[in-house]
Design a protein around this nucleic acid. Structure first.
Lengths: 209, 209
DNA sequence: TGGACAATCAATCACTTGATTGAGACGCCG
DNA sequence: CGGCGTCTCAATCAAGTGATTGATTGTCCA
């Protein structure tokens, strides 16, 4: 038998190049926003010629779609890291908060880029087609958690699960857009969210400051 | 005595022109985002030459600051329409929600433009200097309401007022960024916010769907 | 009436920016 | 070796793009 040895190529494969381009573009979007995003800057950051960039990603429109796809993929991956479906609602909620906190601390560029792209999705159908399902599935997941918590009696019985899910998502999404005061503020807010969801029967002896 | 008759000028005054320019720019930011904002488009929408635009607003940077200032002014005006300081917390909160709802319905461009500019504020100190105090004062106002509600016993005693204010602002700000599902969703969310704040002693016979 | 100032515009500049072209370099397979 | 497909780049294009210039028009007041 023969063993295939892959010697590192002087030239990168298309997949690797496309990923490098997407990550460079993401970083530049975080730094300068869409209005400051230039194909030349992306090429320079990757270390390739502008024509090479256009070889791998034909147009700027396709480039932005690629960025949206890699962001979508990163979020989906993070979503699948820990199993949670079988746990009680309050624990699923805390896992969700922990995941969000970890992403916010370890990969702030991801959430900032996501914010920028969600804003763009409002007027760019191509981006919306990629990211709206991602956001919708997040809302759905939160709605499931709240519904389960209401059903098992740990959450308030008068909760509107979908509204509560939108409140949670809005509060967290709001933190994405502000850098600096994290993660202290993050913990205060998730704790307040928990208190606002829990059933008053469970007397929390954990008064806020 | 002589009567001063102001005959409509063929030429507009600088203040009027600057306002018209700011409003046109705001509309174009809503339509195309910052990355699609062109000085020529603004001039065309106002009906003036590009050089005239530069006469009134010297640079694009100054133009964006001007847009931020008019947005700030619009929000401050709306903030001062109804007196509210002396009312009970729950009513002040409802007035706040009503105001937000009205703005969302009557002037969606204002909130969309505000969202775009808040995003830009993250990387543009000039915009941040104008809009961050506005946002901070909104958070402060919400914090005051929650603190008052906790003090008079209508809100939960374990509330963290600042965290709750951030949750409210986040939930409303999230609605700004999504057009289409308003104002139905808005009402569901504000009602859920109310329930999450109110003291469980006040038994609300208003179960959510 | 005439000078000072405010407001406007056609024409243009200097530079940016997304995209293309044509040629070459590299690895693989026969 | 030789051809073929993949990948890369220097050079360039065409359409913008913010800003400027020099001149013109209207308003107001002495």
């Amino acid at each position: 038998m023969t063993v295939q040895i892959t010697i590192p190529n002087k030239r990168e494969s298309t997949d690797e190049r496309r990923l490098a381009i997407a990550l460079a573009a993401r970083a530049l979007i975080v730094e300068k926003g869409f209005e400051g995003l230039r194909t030349r800057d992306i090429a320079e950051r990757v270390g390739i010629n502008i024509a090479t960039l256009h070889y791998h990603v034909p147009t700027k429109k396709a480039l932005i779609q690629l960025v949206a796809q890699t962001i979508e993929r990163d979020f989906r991956q993070q979503e699948e890291r820990r199993p949670r479906k079988h746990l009680p609602a309050i624990e699923r909620l805390r896992i969700e908060f922990d995941d969000q906190r970890e992403t916010l601390v370890d990969n702030p560029a991801l959430v900032v880029a996501m914010s920028e792209l969600m804003q763009r999705a409002r007027r760019d159908p191509d981006v919306a087609q990629i990211l709206q399902p991602l956001y919708d599935s997040w809302i759905l997941q939160l709605t499931d958690i709240v519904t389960a918590g209401r059903a098992d009696g740990s959450f308030r019985p008068d909760i509107d699960p979908n509204a509560a899910a939108n409140i949670i998502a809005g509060a967290i999404g709001n933190l994405w857009r502000q850098q600096g005061d994290c993660p202290d503020n993050f913990d205060n807010i998730t704790r307040e969210l928990e208190r606002s969801l829990l059933c008053p029967a469970n007397d929390n002896k954990d008064p806020a400051p």
